[in-house]
Simulated assay, not measured.
Amino acid sequence: MSSKLEELQGLVAPVVEALGYQCWGVEFLSQGRHSLLRIYIDKLPDGVLIEDCEIVSRQISGVLDVEDPISAEYTLEVSSPGMDRPLFTIEQFASHAGEQVKIKLRSPFEGRRNFQGLLRGVEEQDVVVQVDDHEFLLPIDMIDKANIIPRFD
């Protein structure tokens, strides 16, 4: 995780949690002069409503205005993780074992960057994914993006 992302996570997570939500994850996409700060919140057992996103957005905006961690223009987006929920932490991967996932790595591992298959679980700091008949142990620090593949059954 980059130091900027760690700084942002450290600023927003306590605010989100103080409001009674779970800070599911933070993404910071630096795109030149216009960046995007996306904060995923969750609330069990009912889930997240648009009003929840508005409440968190207002509070986070205030904190970011005071702390000013992003010098350039940026868009703040507060969202539910949704059905294709992104996975950020080893604990999140462990709790979603048995789900189908899509994983993109920062750099190739065994000749490939994209994996889609069954999330078998975790082993220490590795995510275990079964693709067809082959099991891959993917180091968590190599994962750029991971999402649950929604089931409609």
Rank of each mutant, 00 (worst) to 15 (best):
F109W: 13
A72K: 12
V63N: 02
M1Y: 02
L64D: 08
Q130P: 00
F93D: 06
Y74S: 08
A18T: 07
R151W: 06
E27D: 14
A18Q: 11
V101G: 04
V101P: 00
G47Q: 05
C23A: 14
I60K: 00
G20P: 10
L105I: 08
E110H: 08
P139T: 09
F152K: 03
I90D: 01
F115Y: 12
R113A: 07
Q31L: 12
S35H: 09
V101K: 04
G20C: 10
L137D: 05
G117C: 08
V26H: 05
V101R: 01
G10P: 01
R58P: 00
Q22M: 02
D84N: 12
I143W: 02
G111S: 00
F136G: 03
Q130V: 06
E7G: 00
Y21M: 05
L19G: 02
V131A: 08
K145Q: 14
V129M: 06
G32C: 10
R85S: 15
L76R: 03
G98Y: 00
V26A: 04
K4L: 15
R85M: 12
S107L: 06
N114Q: 14
E67A: 14
S61V: 03
I143N: 03
V78N: 09
K102Q: 13
S80C: 05
V48K: 02
L105H: 03
E73T: 14
G62W: 02
L49N: 09
L19C: 04
S3E: 13
N114C: 08
D126N: 13
I148S: 04
P69C: 06
Q92W: 08
W24Y: 09
K145M: 14
P86C: 02
I55Y: 03
I50F: 11
I50S: 12
S95R: 15
F136Y: 13
A94E: 15
P86F: 04
F88G: 05
G98L: 00
S79G: 02
S71I: 10
V127G: 02
V15G: 00
L19Y: 02
S80P: 05
G82K: 07
F28T: 07
L118G: 01
D52H: 08
G10Y: 02
G25H: 03
V78I: 14
I90M: 11
E99S: 14
N147V: 15
H96V: 11
V129C: 07
A146G: 12
N147Y: 11
L36Q: 09
V122Y: 04
E135L: 08
E51D: 14
P14C: 09
S107I: 04
D84F: 00
H34W: 12
R58L: 07
F109Q: 10
D153S: 10
R85L: 04
D133T: 12
L137Y: 12
K43C: 05
S35Q: 07
A18I: 04
S79M: 06
